[in-house]
Design a protein around this nucleic acid. Sequence first.
DNA 1: ATGAAAATGAAAGTTAATATCATTTAAGGA
DNA 2: TCCTTAAATGATATTAACTTTCATTTTCAT
Lengths: 143, 143
Amino acid sequence: MQPANKMAVLKSFIDAKGLKSTSQRDFIAETFFKTNTHISLDELLSKVRKKTPNIGYATVYRTMKLLSECGLAIARQFGDGQTRYENLPEDGHHDHIICIKCAKIAEFQNPKIEQLQIEAAKKLGFTVVNHKLELYGYCPDCA
Amino acid sequence: MQPANKMAVLKSFIDAKGLKSTSQRDFIAETFFKTNTHISLDELLSKVRKKTPNIGYATVYRTMKLLSECGLAIARQFGDGQTRYENLPEDGHHDHIICIKCAKIAEFQNPKIEQLQIEAAKKLGFTVVNHKLELYGYCPDCA
DNA sequence: ATGAAAATGAAAGTTAATATCATTTAAGGA
DNA sequence: TCCTTAAATGATATTAACTTTCATTTTCAT
């Protein structure tokens, strides 16, 4: 999904819930929608403060909570003690492979794996609505 | 792997590192090796304290850190703010499927998925040494 | 314009993880 | 067996990230 469309989705969500629009929140969301990394609150805060130095941590926190609630961000824990927020990719779902030496994160897509997941779940009587797949290993530089 | 074998692995690891054996650590490890849930430090502490009331949180913490280091425990974050430790199953690796309504966790194994993971990583130049796969959906009771 | 409700930013509170430190204990060597 | 020394323990303090509170400001429907 394009950043502009995400803003539209956010707007509808805000309207539907009877919330109010603010310039701070809009700017935080816009900034987040432009990232393609797994960003932490602190990182997003400093990005945002480059243009708007007086924005508070709590506002970024609350904005990301809101984006998570309406599905525009995904909160993830990769194992360091921080929550990182993933921006929905423009081209659909992807999984992660994380270097256990340098912490580099690469992404990949594999429809066949997803198909097998659905089948494995079906055998247990489950219906899959979402998943997380993380591979841990060595990147080309650290191998 | 059987609990007894795990104790043996731990013993060798301790010897190899020049550490010392203690009754507290042994008892914590034994207790952990008997669980088949994803246990938090607090939960493990209270289990341990039923028989040995004067064991400290820090000792449980340090023991689980040690077990994680030597591969006998796997630290996981399912999204609540707590680290949970997974005991290696006796019959090899498994993945999880979690009900998003009742939080029930089922486990499954699928070698084909694992094979595809290795191939996907290879394409990016990565070597896989471990992975986490979690499916989220509805269990038979909640569907 | 006005007033109710929501948002903001600063600061305080919470929670889980980690480090510190005085004391105890394990284990190899005299 | 008795030292010696290094590691382990348990209590406590510290840290780091997250979450809440509260006084003030802003939005928006009327």
